[in-house]
Write a protein that binds this DNA or RNA. Sequence first.
DNA 1: GTGGATTGATACCCTCAAGGCATGGATCTC
DNA 2: GAGATCCATGCCTTGAGGGTATCAATCCAC
Lengths: 277, 277
Amino acid sequence: MDLDLRKLRYFAAVAEHRHFGRAAEQLYIAQPVLSRQIRALEQELGCALLVRTTRNVQLTPAGEQLQEEARAVFATVDAAVRRVHETDRGVERLVVAFAPGLHVSEAVRAFGATHPGVEIALLRLHWWEQDPPLRDGRADVGYLRRPFDDTGLRSVPVGSEPKVACLPAHHPLARRRALTGADLDGEPILDAQARRTSSVEEKFELIAAGHGIALVPRSVARSYSRPDLVYRPVTDAAPVETCVVVAEDRRERRVLDFVTIAAETLGEQPARLAAVD
Amino acid sequence: MDLDLRKLRYFAAVAEHRHFGRAAEQLYIAQPVLSRQIRALEQELGCALLVRTTRNVQLTPAGEQLQEEARAVFATVDAAVRRVHETDRGVERLVVAFAPGLHVSEAVRAFGATHPGVEIALLRLHWWEQDPPLRDGRADVGYLRRPFDDTGLRSVPVGSEPKVACLPAHHPLARRRALTGADLDGEPILDAQARRTSSVEEKFELIAAGHGIALVPRSVARSYSRPDLVYRPVTDAAPVETCVVVAEDRRERRVLDFVTIAAETLGEQPARLAAVD
DNA sequence: GTGGATTGATACCCTCAAGGCATGGATCTC
DNA sequence: GAGATCCATGCCTTGAGGGTATCAATCCAC
């Protein structure tokens, strides 16, 4: 059973006005209807949302939470309808995903110059979720770092780069110029299996706070530097390969064109990803 | 009139199976019902979603778009219901927002140590939208940079820092060690009024691509460095003040506690925000 | 303290959309 | 061309959404 958007909108009105009568007036329905709908919503959710006295209405903590969640729900729905209409009117959209530290401006610019009618959106990826957005349609094309699950995907390698260790500035190993894998034995590594952080910045916050260290591609080190973190090369770590990736069944012109342009852009200038120190 | 989640779920099933009969079977409804519901959805949206032949079903571009949007809608709704239930069961949540370049790990760690039962979520803010999330409930407390609209908000200053100019590495002004405001006259400044970018990284992509320059607080320069961008101090630019901010009507214990801890954390170590070169 | 005003809840009725069943029309397969 | 497959249409039933009238509880004014 689904949450009913109508009831949710009714609840949002009551939560805003803190008053059934005025909320009903705004919704152009009768007040008793509103009372019943809200009560039904509470039953469906299985928790109280409002504290009713005969003189006023207050929100329970769950009610306040729902008031906020309602905003997100309506924003998502409105955006969905808008984008469907745009697509129906012929607007072409290309969602380019990129793993942290990778730069897409050149390819986007080159693509935009030859495809002025295509609206481009960027999507930040995360370490722990690189390929799913390409498979489920959230993104049309992506810049990914191996390893990732490439079943059902087509990958074009566009460069490779060494790994570096990211340490807190006060870490004992930070005094060394370079490290080897053996140096890192016993260190707590924050990897994809660890508690999932919602952004790159959060991961660095954890490292800075002393919760662990991380092995990251050098381009990440170049993009995110902080005074309380240091990066040290790990001489015997395997290099990381970057790929431009699309789902195998995507055959739209704009998608194929972007892949071509992206491969050319990076292919001509491999120094972008594998620059010298 | 609202999009109907029931119809949307029906559509998602048809889009997945590419077949009315099997979709109806999965939904435990009769096939004719499904035909009518989908047709009604198409009328409500005002655009065709499916191309029906008597032998199979295909999606129109708008239909493919809606299939993808449906995923986002359901994910949002599910998360909303889940969080409401959690709140109802007594789980306390604190959403800490932060403007780009600010680091919250110390305060979060200190808060977590004294409030082990409170679940903490982080929310990245943008230049053009700093204070609204605090006012509409998306965030409980935030680290903001002036200027922002502080009506209805309570702000605790916690530090100030100079501004620097962010330029493409090949820009003529990049050869200078320091700049003044006069040097930047006539340069295209990417500010909050400019075309809105959805992340800090995108803004830097634009700068790197030569679309303009930006004036940013020094802590942003410290957090995001790239080989194709350079930062230069602007000697006569007004410093930027950072504040910990909450809505005036927020009086929950966990919110007030976090503000206290945040102010103490940054107050004791002002070097965090205003470090030497 | 008492009566009027305000506010949310309840009772009862009506309407219409959602859903089921039977069937039609079109297309593919053999 | 007969049968199978698949989506659409017609018709009926049911239940959720909505309206009006009214009640119960509280607040406020005098």
